[in-house]
Design a protein around this nucleic acid. Structure first.
Lengths: 187, 187
DNA sequence: TTTGTTATCGAACACTTTGTTCTCTTTTAT
DNA sequence: ATAAAAGAGAACAAAGTGTTCGATAACAAA
């Protein structure tokens, strides 16, 4: 890929992230992104058709990365294989988040956090589902598997949001402990 | 309040809901709302300053209603007072939703469901919190109260979304059972 | 029924944003 | 060095925003 394209794409992503930290997604105009990224109008539209298109690309970049990193983790350990395993996927995800790679934290604490939260949950849902299938785990409850998967990814994502909004005072391991506690009957 | 105002307000809400069922919130223009509601341009702006303002008013109307109805319920029963009480607040909420009062279901299954989901969760959070304070319940876990409150309302709301997206195949009582099962360690 | 008040209407307004097209310049890979 | 590709910048029509104005109709209260 052309170096110029890479730079432009990065500049647009950066400008978009900056603006998202300042104001709501709906209020951000393409013109502002162009100005902040310091690029030509035509250039923006050569990369993305619309603002929504840009959002989608950013999310894929963000969560594709974080989830694929988590999948590597599941190859060695399951979702929560060992009772005392500190290397659980969830803990790994939390640590990854804390490092604030690609400024996911900034986006998840922005006014438009719901958007990213949904994307995050969808990605996570796929991850949890694949683990459920692989494990072929015996369901010790009579709850539908689909419900459980949704409950796990939903609760995790809501917890992450709570964590971030509360300025991330807990350590990832601590938060992982909370999650284990409330998920105890099903994990 | 003037009869004309009531009619106009209702017409705007109806038009807005209709449009939300068709397309994303971001894509809806004030002009479309005006046309669908079949009112004059000036009239719209006499009622609401912006589209966001309209959204806020609609949400307050929706969730103010549903939550206050749930609060009545908590006066007689706690959140989950009796082991076998079918009149739990959560069950009550689910039944209320199923009746589809004010078309909340339509909005929660729309493309812009995240927006309404957040509003719903915030309302619910207040409800759960007040119950926690009133009960002055002994915490059988060592988890922060704030975390628990967030976990309960978050999980509930995520469950509702799952329910609706899955075409609400379960009965409210059934779903309430699921919720009890996964909330077992803390409720 | 009459009267003063008020919501609604519709046209017009300046302004911003959008997405596209054009030509010209610069950068890149080979 | 050269051809291909990417970016800059100006200009454009189209659509949406939020406001102002005067005229009309519906309203509540006397």
């Amino acid at each position: 890929m052309d170096r110029r394209q890479q730079k432009t794409r990065a500049a647009i992503f950066a400008a978009f992230s900056t603006l998202l930290a300042e104001k709501n997604y709906n209020k951000i105009t393409v013109q502002e992104i162009i100005d902040t990224a310091n690029i030509g109008r035509t250039t923006f539209y050569a990369h993305f058709e619309t603002k929504d298109d840009l959002l989608k690309a950013l999310c894929e970049d963000l969560f594709g990365h974080i989830v694929s990193s988590a999948i590597d983790c599941t190859h060695t350990h399951g979702l929560y294989s060992e009772q005392s395993a500190p290397e659980s996927v969830f803990c790994h995800l939390l640590q990854h988040l804390q490092e604030n790679d690609k400024n996911i934290i900034g986006l998840l604490s922005s006014e438009s956090s719901e958007i990213f939260l949904r994307y995050f949950k969808d990605s996570l849902n796929g991850l949890v589902r694949s683990q459920f299938v692989n494990q072929n785990r015996k369901n010790n409850t009579d709850l539908p598997q689909d419900f459980l998967i949704n409950h796990i990814s939903g609760s995790f994502v809501e917890m992450v949001l709570w964590w971030i909004k509360g300025r991330m005072k807990q350590k990832p391991e601590e938060l992982d402990g909370y999650f284990r506690a409330v998920m105890e009957p099903i994990l």
